[in-house]
Design a protein around this nucleic acid. Structure first.
Length: 481
RNA sequence: GGCUCGUUGGUCAAGGGGUUAAGACGCUGCCCUCUCACGGCAGAAUCAUGGGUUCGAUUCCCGUACGAGCUGCCA
């Protein structure tokens, strides 16, 4: 049978990396077996809706290339794919009533006040367990309340005896006492279903074979199984993904600063690196490879190799991986993306294409660029102590001498290319009997004003051009004199 | 509080009754080198804890600790 998985986000904002990984795994599990990946929008919470959130979801899936086979925009015959539209079609009420007839659910007319009176506070936490009060209402009372237009919810009727077990593909059998199962609300008083009900109905109606979702649903899965059984529906395979935490081992929060996909992109990471990185958070291949394209992940992904324990989102390693992607990127693509960042620091008419390649192996994320190349725009006000370098045996005094000696050589130089400049300086060095660094270090400092640059002395001279280079050397000589 | 899940270096992790307990990030050192980076090489660093079971447990079982999730008319 063809595998069908789904990603079912609520449109409440940006896509958290944990959610993105769930989407990725759902996509990979389906695609690895040639199955279908479905997008369903779970907008049953009218209050938490965020304007534009569906667009964010669509854009994120597009950028990460997790393209659904079926979605609100691509009907595969089991739609609608937006839960609010399914509410309008009366889908959930129909099934809820079926459960009521079977005695697996019941109307509840309890007021918020009565519910509040049931709340008890244990260790600072509010615990609310429903007491099945309305289960005992007679048919007549229910009819009367309904006729009177009293607000109601529909609750699942869970037994007090026995146990319920479900099987997770990763965690194995999980068993809970039925008395731990509260009578969760299936249909809210506004007529919308809760996630707890809608996910079961929709997964069944949409033919979902593998339910991939976060770990936080493990505790409620027994209740979902009871629903499937009450309906006589086939139970899907469950794959619960371990969560992703911050460095403090807490659930990723907005405060971590890198909690959503869009945050990461804004911080200068590339989409492919983010996808690659999160794929490895909770899953490992059977080789020690770490760099995978999406296509390679599809081929390699075996959910049996997923882990069960939470993983820390290691920002540092993501940076490294992003750097690997930048190094492997096609030069034209790299330049196209690097150019705006180069422009932030450079307004002069310099060879940005060359600078782009200089910077390539030295950055991990785009925002690393401006600081690294700003000296090309303008010679910074630097400390003469930069000329002091133990290994090169240089200091401000030797630098002054060398710069004075080298200036006429450069003034006489016609061909201003890296190769020719380097050859000219080598010749000068040989003639004087100096060491390379004894000359090249001061020259580089003199034209860049920085101890660390993304290129060697002659490469910088080439970019700067003869006039600017000589001007900078003269200014540095003045500074040292 | 109750229930459920988890615990291999700082981090991602492989492995799994007998191993020198892979690999990667980071870190340190060396090499390369017109600085840095890239690349190459090397190194330090790990099986939470207490009991079992066993000839032998990091691996299996139980407890403990710690962490997390759920306990919403959120998902």
């Amino acid at each position: 049978m063809k595998i069908r998985t789904r990603y079912a986000p609520s449109p409440t904002g940006r896509m958290h990396v944990g959610n993105l990984r769930t989407a990725l795994y759902a996509y990979l599990i389906a695609k690895h077996e040639g199955g279908d990946f479905i997008l369903r929008i779970e907008d049953t919470d009218q209050v938490r809706q965020v304007e534009g959130a569906v667009e964010i979801i669509n854009r994120t899936l597009e950028e990460t290339r997790l393209i659904p086979d079926e979605s609100p925009d691509k009907d595969g015959g089991v739609g609608p794919y937006v839960q609010s539209e399914r509410v309008a079609a009366g889908i959930y009420t129909k099934y809820a009533k079926e459960l009521i007839e079977k005695g697996e659910a019941y109307y509840c007319f309890c007021t918020p006040e009565r519910l509040a009176s049931l709340t008890q506070t244990i260790e600072g936490k509010e615990i609310n367990v429903y007491d099945k009060h309305c289960l005992h209402l007679s048919k007549e009372e229910v009819e009367k309340n309904l006729a009177a237009g009293k607000p109601y919810v529909i609750r699942q009727n869970n037994p007090q005896e026995g146990t319920t077990t479900f099987t997770d593909e990763l965690y194995g059998d999980v068993t809970v006492e039925n008395k731990e199962l509260d009578d969760m609300i299936l249909i809210k008083s506004d007529g919308y279903p809760t996630y707890n009900f809608a996910n079961v109905v929709d997964d069944h109606l949409m033919g979902i074979t593998h339910v991939i979702r976060g770990n936080e649903y493990i505790s409620s899965t027994p209740k979902y199984n009871r629903l499937y059984e009450a309906f006589g529906w086939e139970i899907p395979k469950y794959i619960h993904c371990p969560l992703i935490t911050d460095e403090e081992h807490h659930k990723l929060s907005k405060r971590s600063g890198h909690s959503s996909y869009e945050d990461l992109i804004e911080q200068g990471f590339v989409s492919e690196a983010v996808v690659n990185f999160i794929a490895l958070l909770g899953w490992s291949p059977d080789s020690d490879r770490e760099i995978f394209s999406l296509e390679e992940l599809v081929e390699q992904f075996d959910y049996h190799r997923m882990g069960r324990s939470p993983s820390v989102f290691d920002y540092t390693k993501l940076r490294w991986m992003n750097g690997e992607y930048l190094k492997a990127m096609d030069p034209d693509v790299f330049f196209a993306q690097a150019e705006p960042w180069l422009r932030k620091a450079i307004s002069k008419d310099l060879d940005l294409r060359k600078i782009s390649e200089m910077v390539r192996t030295r950055i991990e994320i785009w925002p690393d660029i401006p600081d690294m190349v700003s000296f090309f725009e303008e010679l910074p006000d630097y400390d003469a102590e930069l000329f002091r370098h133990k290994k090169m045996k240089t200091n401000p005094e030797t630098a002054l001498t060398v710069l004075q000696e080298v200036l006429p050589v450069l003034e006489a130089q016609d061909s201003w290319t890296n190769e020719d400049l380097f050859a000219a300086l080598k010749a000068f060095i040989a003639e004087k009997g100096y060491k390379n660094g004894y000359v090249l270090w001061p020259v580089r400092i003199a034209v860049s004003g920085k101890s660390v640059t993304p290129a060697g002395a002659t490469e910088i001279l080439e970019i700067l051009g003869k006039e600017e280079s000589l001007s900078r050397i003269r200014r540095s000589i003045d500074k040292l004199s």
